[in-house]
Design a protein around this nucleic acid. Structure first.
Lengths: 339, 339
DNA sequence: TTACTAAATGAAACCGCTTACATTTATCTT
DNA sequence: AAGATAAATGTAAGCGGTTTCATTTAGTAA
């Protein structure tokens, strides 16, 4: 039903090749002809069929976004940045929720490749992720976002934030408030950022000559439930800390809930620093002091990088590290010596 | 590089037509041949090219999801349900953030139509939405999700929840707690759900012979900021209410913040009921009493409905109304006579 | 066995656009 | 003005499938 390139060609009294050239802004068309073709397009309300052109061009102007779960505000923010960049560059994005499952991810990749997707934005990469490595090997355009792999031998584009610094300034903030006994709740150790944030945490402690207590450091999940459970466990132990650094806002919220559950007040009895600065941080009570990650910017830049790669303007291997900063709200306070 | 239908045909010593038939599970292929072809596919690691088949079939197994903003937890939940259904039925979804802008929406629709998208799931419909009406007129498969239009003459599939009932049980809950002076903060009046929730609110008041005070009812935006600002305004007025019904969790959180800002305690001085039951509701302090909307289910069912329509199994015109329920947390309490 | 029908397969056109190559037209030299 | 060159346009062969229609093969009845 909709007009095709043939209809336009007929109306403009040229060949379809010429119409195609106009469509692709080729400079092999005279101004006069170009105008005539454009007019015909207008009159026929012509709209090119992307599918047809994808068949030869192998590009459908669509990117695949692999994230664990869009319902998680952190990934939703990233996704928003990704989508914003996509429209700016004339692309669309297909969203894929992997639920942290490698098999789901593999299946998505297979499916999207069938659809001639132009590239992948991946936020689910583990330390040594098979799916990612296979994609790189097959030379599929991709960019890692917020997650890095550990293969220096493979050229890959990455946009992350400075996690070591994040862990450091979070911990430093607590130390500056007088805390000496600081717990650290991290996400899964397979995700590199957690190792880096821990590194920052340790660096801050060591720099201040504070003792590192392994019992106060725990890896787990990026969930409220983990923060809640682990905080209770740690608060009941002998080394009762006065502050927590949680490697994600959800975990931090779990800690706040745990404190409240145990009759402790935040920040009077327990200070808590989160990570990410999701919208949750300002909703929760008390509003959460946290490390701001610039998720949207990260999403935007990752997408921009990928699109440039797709357009052949560059080859992979770039690593962009975004800065982080501390957002002080009301979940942290000075340590008072109360005996 | 990847194997095509021709490679498979050659290896299985059949024509490409036969391979295509196997691909489409046609029953015009003998068992023997079918096996042979399948074996060849295996051996060649063949994977059909969706783009090529889309050119004739006009279906690319992809749906467009139009929402205002994925960073809003309500829409993120819906999106998750949509995506879950998509994978279950072999589809993918393209996400579109319209930012409540009709022009952005129009542009997305144009773009996705060029890409031979199979249908649209729309969660941005206004009362009398031009874009939606045009789509319906052009017979494009679509389903409205969580939003309805007001055109009884147009056959359209809709999955919504019972907003009148939601407004009713929220208000009833407050009345049962002894509140007589209940404010109602709604979203934009162009969105039909707000009118419906107001209707439920009014019904509960009238049923109990409580006076309706127009000064206590306000339309605005689904945002924290609106709840905050409007609650302060209303709390400073002469008809100082003891409870608020907010038509969305974000607005309710704004109300809680306003109360705190004014030195009032929730729920001792002010009770607050939200709407949606997003994850925010249990994160906030105090945890929010709210109306649960079953967003994931809504997303899932809407998508299922759409896909059935696409597959030609049904024609449009169905309206599914999901039930809502009250989730009592700690932002609501009995009204004590302190005066 | 033959004749006839149903089942299985193949040949080729087509989906709408891109592009290599051929051809025509315009522009420039001398 | 003829010849050479560059610019503009057209022809036709793909891209990787689907599908109609013709043809071959198998199955059944007489």
């Amino acid at each position: 039903m909709p007009a095709t390139i043939y209809d336009v060609a007929k109306r403009a009294r040229v060949s379809i090749a010429t119409v195609s050239r106009v469509l692709n802004n080729s400079d092999l068309v005279s101004e006069k002809t170009r105008e005539r073709v454009k007019k015909a397009m207008e009159e026929l309300n012509y709209s090119p069929n992307v599918i047809a052109s994808a068949l030869t061009k192998k590009s459908i102007l669509t990117l695949g976004l692999l994230i664990p779960d869009i319902a998680n505000p952190f990934f939703a923010e990233l996704a928003r940045g990704v989508e914003d960049a996509s429209v700016d560059f004339g692309f669309n994005i297909i969203i894929c929720n992997t639920d942290y499952r490698s098999d789901k991810e593999t299946e998505y990749i297979r499916l999207l490749k069938q659809k001639s997707i132009d590239g992948f934005i991946i936020s689910t990469a583990y330390y040594n992720d098979e799916n990612v490595i296979n994609l790189i090997k097959s030379n599929t355009p991709l960019v890692l976002m917020g997650r890095d792999i550990d293969r220096a031998d493979m050229p890959v584009d990455v946009v992350v934030s400075d996690n070591v610094r994040g862990g450091y300034i979070a911990t430093k903030h607590l130390i500056d408030l007088g805390h000496k006994n600081i717990a650290c709740l991290l996400g899964p150790p397979q995700i590199k950022v957690n190792l880096e944030r821990e590194k920052g945490y340790l660096k801050a402690l060591e720099e201040t000559n504070l003792k590192v207590r392994p019992e106060l450091v725990a890896f787990g999940e990026f969930k409220v439930e983990f923060g809640f459970r682990k905080a209770i466990e740690i608060l009941n132990s002998v080394h009762k800390p006065t502050a927590f650094f949680a490697a994600n806002d959800l975990t931090a919220i779990g800690v706040i809930k745990a404190a409240r559950y145990m009759g402790l007040e935040v920040p009077r009895d327990i200070s808590v620093v989160g990570y990410d600065n999701t919208m949750l941080a300002e909703m929760v009570d008390p509003p959460l002091t946290t490390i701001n990650q610039q998720m949207r910017k990260m999403g935007y830049m990752a997408t921009e990088l990928l699109i440039k790669r797709i357009k052949g303007k560059r080859s992979p291997g770039q690593k962009i590290v975004l800065d982080v900063d501390l957002v002080v709200r009301r979940s942290t306070g000075e340590l008072f010596n109360r005996g």
